[in-house]
Amino acid sequence: MSDAVIVVVLLLVAACATAAVVQRDPARQALVLSVLGVLLAALFTVLQAPDVGLSQLAVGSALTPLLIMLCVRKIRRRGRPKEDAR
């Protein structure tokens, strides 16, 4: 029975990784990366690795998206005066 849950979560992780790569806009990609982090944590729990799941949750669901979103906001704010000028 525990194999079925591994297969389901593996396929979800593969689909989410594809979605993260196909999504070209960085802000929306951060959203998909956050969901990928949560799904990876579920996969690690299913593969009996709770420590790694905790680490992925802590890093993937709050830290990485926050860094990417701050970067997008800085570059979007930097671009604004030029856009008005254009």
Binding site: P50, L54, S55, A58
Partner: peptide, 25 residues
């Protein structure tokens, strides 16, 4: 708690440190 129980239950210095830092924000 995650840092303190690092050598007992799942968790450790890395995970607890990141959680505490994110909590501050």
């Amino acid at each position: 708690y995650v840092v303190a129980h690092g050598q007992l239950s799942p968790g450790g210095g890395f995970q607890g440190g990141v959680v505490a830092a994110t909590a501050l924000h």
